[in-house]
Design a protein around this nucleic acid. Structure first.
Length: 555
RNA sequence: GCCCUCGUGGUGCAAUGGAUAGCACGUAAGCCUCCGAAGCUUAAAAUGUGAGUUCGAUUCUCGCCGAGGGCGCCA
């Protein structure tokens, strides 16, 4: 517990004591006391709506309850400087100014860990995201999914969850066969043979490149192999290349996974049968029209789903159920899947499967990431000019820059349909929001460099001097960070961190314009302010790190 | 037709059921002999619509209107 949390804890305990003393409820009925930071600072440093929450229990109007709490509250000698009733029954609390500066000490002590908390209780949680088929390049939508998934994972980790990031490789189904056939066709074409692409083939440039590389390496030698061998070769080779490319693209996007889980391994380890048997044992499977079905309607799906087709092969659902069964068997208490909006119709059957395997429905959470629309020159732009295909993640990063892409996706809630303004993201000017936060970090770095040259050092001995309005604003905003992270984790909304970064940068810039940090005529104040801005820089860097954006010392 | 997501200033987005609805772009007016003006200050401008639940609704429920997505023994 850092210094700020201790202050909050002290206030909560004092309120609880007062409530008990006033006999408004007993220990059993005591609601959790929420301290929020009021929007408007005339309403104090903290506010609580506890009096409103107690209306039902105490059967009195909120303001009367608030008054009774006040009458029984011991404030002498505590951090509470002032407490008053406001509006419909809020209790606004001002704390002694010398306690506000505790946050600076907390940040300087915790450094890169400032903002970390135990809010998540170390629940074992798995986040599965991207999971694009290894049959081509990642595109725009994957970039958003990767950004949101990675940011969410970072936030969960920081908020005290035990997080694992996982990518599910669809390396077993029909699409991989199509990949192999597509490479084969391109290979033949590279040899000058008239070959037709398969009906559901992949027409991307990457496939042509792979085939041409094969032609260079083997000439026509692969034609000598029998069809089965050649197919197996293209299949495994294509998979290796495509997967390697995915991994590289994601690493370059600052997204790293703990586990790359192969669909094929489910077949090899017999896990599909394990899952099917469990569904059968639990009575959720039936046979009809020559197919084997999962009675998902038992769990609210709008129709039952085929598991084994009448040709004896599995539908895509079957290994997916086995996969989720395996996740649970590995001990995860919570599964979060991040899916594109085009898969959202799949949620009810997957949730049904989770339940059919004997688990609570809410064990699986699916975050749906809505579509991204690129705009350039005010016009909708779906296709890449270069390739005529959907814009790839790599192209987007090349054009816009990694930080801007990560920031733009991190800014938005995943469930909002998003318009990505390419001109704004590309612009290297004050119009671009990513620079705003980075600029604050660079600016502080610059001041600290100057401080060092002039022989100033930080000191936490004179923090009490930080009394100016803008300084108080910065202190309070900085103190909010751990709670912001915890809330972002709880609501699975990493974009709240981006919103926070914006706010913290604003309070800093505003402070900067109002007060001079380096002042040779006031060394104590200077040293206190250096401590303050050092803490701000750490907080901004930590927050930027959570959303995968760099914190530059110079720009 | 059924299901899901979303409707907030001119535009793009925020807001655990709480106080005077935030931010950015754009618009208008100011601020650098001074630590980085990619900054600051000020102004105008918004909850699609109709009911309901509640002390209190941008938030929850239902209807309507609008946008996107999904409804396969494809993945």
């Amino acid at each position: 517990m850092n210094a700020v949390e201790q202050v909050q804890q002290t206030i909560k305990e004092a309120l609880q004591q007062a409530i008990l003393k006033a006999r408004l409820t007993d220990t059993e009925g005591m609601p959790a006391i929420q301290l929020e930071t009021p929007r408007d600072k005339v309403n104090g440093d903290y506010a609580t709506n506890i009096a409103m929450q107690l209306t039902k229990l105490a059967k009195k109007p909120p303001r009367a309850i608030a008054q009774e709490i006040l009458d029984n509250l011991e404030t002498a000698g505590t951090v509470i400087e002032k407490i008053e009733i406001a509006g419909p029954g809020f209790m606004n609390i001002s704390i002694r100014k010398d306690y506000l500066t505790e946050v600076v000490i907390a940040v300087l002590e915790q450094g890169a860990d400032y903002g970390r908390s135990k809010a998540g209780g170390y629940v074992k949680i798995q986040v599965e995201f991207v999971s694009a088929n290894p049959t081509g390049d990642l595109h725009l939508g994957h970039a958003r999914g990767a950004s949101v998934g990675d940011s969410l994972s970072n936030v969960l980790d920081f908020a005290g969850y035990d997080v694992s990031r996982e990518y599910y490789i669809n390396d077993a189904g029909k699409q991989i066969n199509n990949l192999a056939y597509s490479i084969e066709a391109r290979y033949k074409q590279a040899l000058g043979i008239d070959a037709e692409m398969p009906e559901d083939g992949y027409h991307g440039q990457d496939i042509i490149n792979i085939a041409q590389a094969q032609e260079k390496e083997f000439g026509d030698a692969l034609l000598q192999k029998n069809e089965e061998e050649r197919f197996a070769h293209f299949r495994s080779y294509g998979l290796q290349i495509e997967l390697g490319k995915l991994q590289q693209d994601l690493a370059d996007f600052r997204v790293n996974f703990d586990e790359w889980f192969s669909e094929t391994s489910l077949y090899e380890n017999g896990k599909i049968d394990v899952a099917l048997n469990k569904l059968r044992t639990n009575g959720h499977v039936f046979v009809e029209d020559g197919a084997t079905w999962f009675r998902s309607t038992t769990f609210g799906d709008d129709k039952d789903r085929v598991l084994i087709k009448n040709d004896g092969t599995f539908t895509y659902l079957t290994p997916d159920i086995a996969y989720h069964g395996d996740k649970i068997a590995r001990g995860f208490e919570k599964l979060i899947n991040i899916w594109g909006a085009d898969h959202h119709g799949y949620i009810p059957r997957m949730k049904a499967a989770i339940q059919a395997l004997g688990n609570p429905e809410d064990m699986l959470e699916v975050s749906v990431i809505q579509m991204v629309q690129l705009y350039k020159d005010g016009e909708k732009m779906k296709m890449s000019k270069r390739t005529g295909k959907a814009v790839t993640m790599r192209e987007l990063v090349e054009e816009v820059g990694l930080d801007a892409v990560r920031y733009f996706f991190a800014m938005r809630s995943g469930d909002s349909h998003m318009d990505f303004d390419l001109d704004l993201a590309v612009s290297q000017s004050n119009e671009n929001p990513v620079y705003y936060a980075q600029y604050a970090h660079a600016r502080i770095s610059s001041i600290l460099r100057a401080a060092q040259e002039q022989g100033f050092t930080a000191s936490d001995e004179h923090l009490v001097l930080l009394q100016a309005e803008k300084e108080i604003d910065v202190l309070k905003k900085m103190g909010d960070f751990p709670q912001v992270v915890a809330e972002a984790a709880k609501h699975r909304s990493p974009h709240r961190v981006a919103t926070y970064i914006q706010e913290l940068a604003t309070t800093f810039h505003s402070f900067y314009n109002a007060e001079k940090v380096l002042d040779p005529t006031n060394e104590d104040m200077t040293r206190a302010r250096i401590a303050l801005i050092t803490a701000v820089r750490t907080t901004i860097a930590n927050a930027l790190r959570l959303i995968g954006v760099s914190a530059p010392e110079k720009m």
